[in-house]
Each structure stands twice: as C-alpha cells, then as structure tokens.
Write a protein that binds this DNA or RNA. Structure first.
Lengths: 213, 213
DNA sequence: AGGAAAATTATACGATCTTATAACAAGAAG
DNA sequence: CTTCTTGTTATAAGATCGTATAATTTTCCT
C-alpha cells in the first residue's frame, strides 16, 4: 500500500487529533488486532498499522504498549457492563423484569459474538501477569458482582425466598455466566444462546426453591 | 551458567532420550514457562532454556512451536481430567459419594492453584486461533461434560428427581465450575475453595429441587 | 568392534519486536 | 502573518523470535 505519489522528500500528511480521541482510536485498533490474531495481534506495529498511524504515536500516547492494552481492556469492560446495565434500566422496574433483562442482554447477539468473547478471553489471560490490568479487573468484577447481588437481593425480597449469603450467590451466578460465555466461545456447538438464557433461569429457579438457603 | 570448563572446541555433552520422553520434558518445560511469563513465555528459546536443551531440539521433535504448545495443552488436560476422574473412582460407588468426590477434587489444592489455573486460562486464549488446540479442546470438553452428565444422571435416578435436559444441565454445571476457577484465579479474594464446593453443592441442590425439570 | 541411525548441538539468517530520538507539520494563539 | 506548542512522522538501534541447515555425538544393532 504505497501513499499516492508523494514527492521525493514530502512527509505523510496527517490530521492532528485531541489526545483522548487518539487514545480511543488506538484502543479500538488494539481490540481489532486482538480479534484478528489473538495474543499475536498485540504489537505496536500491527496496532499502529490498524489505526493508520505510525508506531511512535503509541509510545507517545501510552509510553509502553502494555498501557495501551490495559486501556483497551478498560474500554471494552466499560462498554459491556454499560450495555448490560442499560438493558436493566430500560426494563420495567420490577425485580423479576430487571433480572430477566439482565439475563437476556447477557445472551444477546452483542455478547454472543465469538469476536467479542474471544478478545475477552485473551484479556483474561493477560490479567495474571499485568498488575495494571489486574487492578482494573478487580474493580470491574466487584462492580459486576455488586450489580448481580442487587438484582438477586431485590428478587428475594420481592418473592420472599431465603438466600444465606447473597454475595456468594452473586459470585456463583456470575461464574455461571462467565463459564457459559467461555464454553460457547470455545465451542459454539455446546449450546444455543436461548439455552444459555434457560440455564441462567434454571439457576434462578434453584435460588427460588431454597438451594442457597 | 557456564558449562564447567569445556575445552576450546568441545561440544556440550548430552544425554539421548526416547522421543516420547523428550517430548514430555519439553511439554512440561513449556508449562513452566507459561506459569512464569504467561503468553510471553511461549517461545522456542525460553522453553529450550527451561528444559536445558538447545532450540533445534524443539524444531526436531515438534516441527513448529505451536505443535509443542498444543502438546503441552494435551498433557495438562489429560492430567487434570485424570486426577479428577481418579478421585471419583476411589469414592464409594454411590452416586452421591461419587459426585461429592468430583466436586471436592475440583476444589482441592491441586486445582485451586493460581499457577495451574493461570496456565489453563492462557490455553483458553490460544484455542480460538489454533485449529489444532481447538480440536483437542472439543474432544476434552466433550469428555468432561459427558462425565458430569453421567454423574448427574446417576444421582437423579438414585434420588428420583427430574432433569429435563441432562446434557444441558451438565453444560451448566461445567460452566459453573469453569467460571469459579476463572474468578478465583483472577481474584483469589472472591471466595475460598470451601465456598466453591458449597456453591457447587447449592447448584446440585437446585437440581434436586426441580429447577431444571 | 564397527557402523548406521537418529538425537542433539551449534550456528546462521531474515523477520519482527520494543523503545528511543530527532525532525517535521498542524493548529492555535498572539 | 508569525510564533509557539505538541501531535505526528520518520528512522535507527538493539533484542528477540522462528526456522533451516550442517556438524557432531550418542546409542543401538550386528
């Protein structure tokens, strides 16, 4: 891909952008690279090329590449949590409707996308060796479990069933969904999205029937 | 680490090993490298150094490095599945005791080890971009779910409760455990191993009470 | 012993990677 | 219109990576 007939000593023309915007562009380019090549896609050169800029820009905006990856992780985490929370907020304000919305959103086409989940799994694999990403993950995981705990607590109060340890129950439900995402991502034949919804609802049904009392 | 006083033109002495043994040594060295450095540990040079051999040996035994990684994945998969299955076989032959053994083994110190689980997560992240590993994973996942399905089916027959779709229930239980492993690996403060056992038992209790009927 | 087969070392080559540095240009401000 | 700031390009340096190839050593077989 040659630049269209540049003179002998002309430099490439470029557009100057606000730092936050460029950072976001680079972060999204990173996500696209990970979609395409997994871990192997994480490279200054590939990401710069994907974003249509030179490598130096990444150094300039992020210092080292791990910082860019962590930033991309943050972008994605926020995006996912937000889209799910949004679905909950838009549901009818009854505990059951809100929980249903949560589950449905979790298995909507936005989430049941191998590209999305594939990037997610790659991030998981990076967290253990990146204190920076680990901190983000703990924060985000806490928020997530907290949200689930709220939904489950509201439901139990509304319907009058007992849950011995609400936080643990939320951990369990979260684990179930993560596990289903992972299983489907690695092997989409394992179950259909609608079956994922059903399995989550079955878990809730167990909760109703006092399995966690 | 210099070799002890080699003459000017002497070559390093070495021991010749049977191919299968050497392959296994290299596979285990690869696992150790992944423990230490995650994805970044996957490199011909690092693995060869870890195994105490030269790089060429990896090419010789595996051709390309991805083949070695896939082999390491197979080693680990078999090891884990075997240790769990063994615990089940050693339990009393009642459905409940066997299932208990399965759950207990799944949260024993052998599994609740961040090094072990960390490697596991790295492998997950590689599967999506490696047809060879993907094939292994599907096979192994099928075996695993099949084992779970057998345990759940036996219990339901013994205790006389109804499960609408046994395969789906096994998928769900498997997902719960994978999700708990993942959560604990990324954040060991999320719950204690004994609580993991309890959460699995709670899931089973839901099954008993007809949540999946 | 002696010799053949194959495991292993040693080395080289080209590609790609990360990071650092200097030059340049775009946009804003005076 | 000029000047200043800084986002951006361009380039280089050094490390690491994967793989190929040839030389050498071990080991087994006769």
């Amino acid at each position: 891909m040659t630049t269209a007939k540049t003179g002998p000593k002309t430099r490439a023309r470029f557009r100057r952008e606000a730092p936050e915007e460029r950072r976001r562009q680079l972060g999204e380019a990173a996500l696209r690279c990970i979609v395409k090549h997994g871990n192997a896609g994480v490279s200054v050169r590939q990401i710069a090329a994907e974003a249509g800029v030179t490598q130096g820009l990444i150094t300039h905006h992020f210092g080292e590449i791990n910082e860019l990856v962590a930033y991309a992780f943050d972008i994605m985490s926020e995006g996912i949590l937000q889209s799910i929370v949004k679905a909950v907020e838009e549901a009818e304000p009854t505990p059951k409707a809100r929980l249903d919305a949560f589950i449905t959103a979790s298995f909507s086409p936005i989430m049941m996308d191998r590209d999305v989940l594939g990037v997610w799994v790659v991030f998981w694999s990076l967290i253990l060796h990146s204190p920076r990403m680990s901190a983000s993950q703990r924060q985000e995981y806490g928020d997530y479990v907290g949200t689930v705990q709220g939904l489950l607590g509201d439901l139990s109060r509304e319907e009058g069933f007992v849950v011995a340890d609400l936080r643990l129950a939320a951990v369990s439900f979260t684990a179930l969904m993560d596990g289903l995402w992972l299983a489907w991502c690695l092997n989409p034949d394992a179950f259909r999205p609608a079956e994922g919804v059903r399995l989550c609802n079955n878990w809730i049904e167990g909760l109703r029937r006092g399995a966690h009392a």
